[in-house]
Amino acid sequence: MKITEPHKEHIVAHHFANSKHEFDSARLGMWIFLVTEVLFFGALFVAYAFLRWSYPEIFVEAHHILSWKMGALNTAILIFSSFTMVMAIRSAQLNQRLKTSLYLITTMICAFGFLVVKFFEYSAKIHHGYLPAKYFVAHGASEYLHLFFGLYFTMTGLHGIHVLVGIGLIIWLLLRNRKGHFYSNYYTPLEMVGLYWHFVDLVWIFLFPLFYLVG
């Protein structure tokens, strides 16, 4: 990458007064989008509460089936990727283009790592027949164990889709950074994707103990 090449000057959209106005508006919009995401995932946690209260025994049984080691590894991976994400933004604020790219690539590798671990977990569950309710074929001790796996696959699956979308966004950021779009006075897309990525981390911070640890 030719990091000596000057960055591309950002042109503020015609309906904004200046770049601060533009940045503040974008960030407010992103926070409001995250509000919708909170309610999107939050509703699933309400379903979780309902199941847990109705059939506490399936959570006890299931947390022995899920591997807390895999879950903990994925937690560490996502937390670390959140850290590299903020460092990528910080590098852009300091006009360090190469560092921005390196941090973004690290974040992306973490995201792929997360999905690889998830893949191994999923295939083990599927192999043993721990599938969502209709296709559930395993023999559990509790009568309603299929409900746990219905919810488990829905919640972690939806989270996984968010990780995939995040990977796509990070690739887009990398391409734009290569063209020199981001510098100290313009890094709005970086900041917005960053917020999104931290939110994905946030959801996992709750999913991990609720599914893997608490029985």
Partner: peptide, 30 residues
Amino acid sequence: VINIFMGLRWNRTFDRIAFLGSLVFLFIFF
């Protein structure tokens, strides 16, 4: 994560109100 990584503690007041608002309404639902 919210305060440091997402920088909410350095953000404008309304960003904070919006985010806390989402938790309030989620709580109502729950």
